[in-house]
Amino acid sequence: MTWVTACQLAEIEQEGAKRFDHEGRTYALYRAPDDSVYCTAGLCTHEAIHLADGLVMDYEVECPKHSGVFDYRTGEALRLPACENLKTYQVEVVDGEVRVAIG
């Protein structure tokens, strides 16, 4: 398991998302209303749109283009046109630093 530091927790808005790029791949980090942090693949599974630009409400993120919706905790596609689930990554927050297990 490779852990990388993505950002500071304070850089992600509460009930919001932030894009994180690492070694040619893109991820989306989410800070839930309860301040827990999650990470999914960065691009929507319908078309290659960055999900971090989408609206986060509770535990869901909505694609900013075609309005597909995912549960960012599990990656589950909840609304069309998204039908393929997102890959998710383990996250830990240590001393205000967000770390992601990328592989």
Binding site: I49, H50, D53, G54, L55, E62, P64, K65
Partner: peptide, 11 residues
């Protein structure tokens, strides 16, 4: 730029 207005338009 990009999809930066999407969140606020959705709201």
């Amino acid at each position: 730029t990009g999809n930066s207005v999407a969140k606020d338009i959705k709201l």
